[in-house]
Design a protein around this nucleic acid. Structure first.
Lengths: 245, 245
DNA sequence: AACAGTAGCTTATGGCGTAAGGAGTTGAAC
DNA sequence: GTTCAACTCCTTACGCCATAAGCTACTGTT
């Protein structure tokens, strides 16, 4: 993982990201193509959804399509390129309708939609988003956020900071949510065993970290960690939006 | 990568994260130990710094210590556990001095220190931070942030949202910075070639994404992308802090 | 009908994490 | 002082992984 596509591939990946159906040129000799970039992307997303990023292998994708792993290399340069394409692909799921209403609600809707997509595809927030250029669907998601913020008529630097920050907030909290879901909610018993282990290893915890302890005590043990994390995210976003108003 | 340590290992990793020097019990039969968990962690961090997460292998760490990869398994259960330990370890680099001064400045200092650490170890922001419990040094970083925010006497839910958000912001922007650094600043020529490729693939870009284009034009082409990204981060943090005041 | 270009296959290479088991070293028990 | 059990570190091996190289069979063009 975390393979960095070289700059030499930049134009190639741009062409693939922004491809249209017309790009398929069937006027070439040779056997008819059994696959397509789109089919491969969809299969790869399905594999990643089911088995996580660790389970995403070229073989697994090929198997799902009834082909060998090497067949994919006709369509895709390497695994890093495939991941780039997958990343853009899932952003197409976000609805592009822009409901009327107060800008704050629209931003929250945008954040909720993005979070929901991240939870449907928990591998997305852990994939690098570094890219020569954005893909069309990522670009659309950014455009929608800018549209929600437009009524505020922010100066460019503020707008850039707000948009980038909102992205990072949603990504970060969504990753926390996805990780929590994957690790599973610890039941009271295992939680207690961990607390004991920590108390044994760090008996002076309360003196060393009084503020952390106070914060932890103030909210107490909440069985519905999912709702808690989502509420924390909403609070964070609202803080940022308060700063804009 | 992205192996999730099972809940069964939770107490083990807690003991390792919060280990003290006394934990080494030399009163056991068998050959004297040539290594230690600490030595292994330091070697692993060095490898990751030099070759990135993709280059971090048990063999590479063993080589650096003059041992085989299998020798590490005496000290560490598996690679995922080692990464957890590495993650906490680098957080020890942050200074724990708490300068007097306005709370806003203190938060910015905290963010700058954390960003600098992330840039010294660019693999850190791409590693999962999901964990049964925080390690001592991560806990200390959180405690320091809470200390900076203490004068505000925020209600718990707000404090939680603010702290989490600030963490995610720094992590997100630091990752952007690290990625940009790794990919390298595209010179004007390659940048132009990419713009051409995009224009060829999406001639209607300006009509489809008017707000993105406007934002991009407003700030123009800045050769010092690093300073730009850092400024964007500061703007984002300030927005959030404005929401607190 | 010949040909050239292509798709997808088999095979091979050099990595990876780590399971299994063996050899040698040591402190403690007698 | 000998025995033993526990321990560290090693070698070997397994089943994965991405992907390079080269092959075969197919097909549009000439």
């Amino acid at each position: 993982m975390s393979v960095i596509p070289g700059q030499g591939d930049a134009e190639r990946i741009i062409r693939l990201l922004w491809r249209t159906d017309d790009d398929v040129v069937p006027t070439a000799p040779g056997p008819r193509r059994a696959l397509s970039v789109g089919l491969i992307i969809e299969a790869a997303v399905a594999v990643a959804d089911e088995t996580g990023m660790a389970g995403l292998s070229m073989r697994a994708v090929g198997d799902r399509l009834g082909r060998t792993s090497m067949a994919l290399y006709t369509y895709v340069a390497d695994k890093a390129e495939l991941v780039d394409l997958m990343y853009d692909h899932v952003h197409a799921e976000l609805g592009r309708d822009r409901p009327a209403g107060p800008w704050r609600d629209r931003v929250h809707t945008w954040a909720a939609d993005l979070t929901a997509m991240y939870l449907r595809h928990p591998w997305v927030p852990e994939v690098s988003y570094a890219r020569a250029v954005l893909g069309p669907h990522e670009q659309a998601v950014l455009e929608d956020l800018l549209a929600a913020l437009e009524p505020l008529a922010l100066p460019p630097e503020t707008l850039r900071g707000a948009a980038g920050s909102l992205h990072h907030l949603v990504r970060g909290f969504a990753r926390t949510l996805a990780d929590a879901e994957r690790l599973g909610e610890p039941d009271t018993e295992t939680w207690q065993r961990r607390a004991d282990a920590l108390a044994a290893s760090a008996p002076d915890f309360a003196e060393r970290f009084p503020l952390s302890v106070r914060l932890s005590r103030a909210t107490g043990w909440d069985p519905d960690w999912r709702a808690r994390i989502e509420a924390t995210m909403r609070t964070g976003i609202d803080l940022l939006l308060d700063g804009l108003a």
